[in-house]
Simulated scan of single mutants.
Amino acid sequence: MNLFYILGSGSQWGYEGDNGPSSWHNDFPLCAGYRQSPISIRTKEAVMNNDWLSPIKIRGYISPEKLQMYLINNGHTVQINLQGAPIYITGGGLKNVYIAQQIHFHWGKTNARGSEHNIDGRYFPMEMHIVSYNTKYNNFVNALDKEGGLAVLAFMFEIGEHNSNFDRIINLIPDPGGKYSFHLKIIFECETVQMDTFDLRELLPETLDGYCHYSGSLTTPPCYESVKWFIFYETIEISRRQLNAFRQSALPDDANEPIKLFKEHFRPPQPLNGRKIYCHKKDW
């Protein structure tokens, strides 16, 4: 989970070399904690629980006049910030109401690996996170490091048919090579463009009933262990061309020339350390 635009410079850490995930704990000690994310979900070891878990519900007044969406280059990935009228997330055994704050993506160089979580050893080419905060803490910043302060809905992607619902994002992603003829909107770090507002549910699978849940952390520094994770069974289909558009996105180098840096950005799985994984309507 990438929170660059609130927590600091993207140059402080990365995914390769000396500032890669194995060294994050040097500057961010919590990254060596005991409830870190992502994890490997082993379905045979998961606890089936339909008593206190319930379907996730997403509700809220969706209107261009009330809700604003902004696409941002956050230094590591593309991210959609949500402002204005709240989108509420409830269910899943959450004790409080959560408000969606942002959406971002993790992908890899190849279709074999891109997701942060894996299911019985299977990785997916891309993973989407919808990040929300607990209204108990009044706002996103206050909730960041609090117990149960955040809830993240994670969705896996598979290569398949063209998904027109994602064109509204892809058409704003920079492509310096020009292969896809998309507009150069967020080519520089921290650059933002307002999007046309749409119903968040258009990006999601038809059902949100089936998922696995566990307690973990942000998957990027400072790795606060404040996250209630929900990993959904049903995948999202996207075409190979659309996924490649994400991979072609760019960042500037020191000379402010666009170069391709968004090749892959995922943290390896972390030890479970005795944590329980609970599944609702387990069907993997």
Rank of each mutant, 00 (worst) to 15 (best):
I259F: 12
L53V: 01
Y180P: 01
R42I: 14
N26W: 06
M126E: 05
R275C: 01
E45P: 00
M69P: 01
C31S: 06
L71V: 05
R59E: 15
D209A: 06
K281S: 11
N138L: 13
V78M: 06
E161L: 00
N26T: 08
F28W: 12
E127T: 00
S239A: 00
S22C: 01
N73Y: 05
F166V: 06
T77S: 11
L172E: 12
N50Q: 12
L218C: 00
H104S: 06
N273C: 13
D254N: 13
T43M: 08
R168K: 14
G92S: 02
D253E: 05
A100C: 13
I6F: 13
K136H: 10
Y137N: 04
P221K: 02
E237T: 14
L150A: 02
I89L: 14
A250G: 00
P86Y: 08
E16V: 09
G160I: 05
Q194K: 15
E225L: 03
P271D: 07
N118K: 10
S63P: 02
P86I: 13
H162R: 07
S215N: 09
R247A: 01
Q83Y: 13
T192L: 09
M69V: 02
Y123I: 08
I103M: 09
F124A: 04
I231L: 11
C31R: 00
F266S: 11
P38N: 01
G210H: 08
N165W: 03
Q194G: 00
R241L: 13
F232I: 03
T135N: 14
R240T: 12
N73Q: 06
L243R: 07
K228Q: 13
G20V: 04
G216H: 06
G92A: 03
I87S: 02
T43V: 10
Y233G: 05
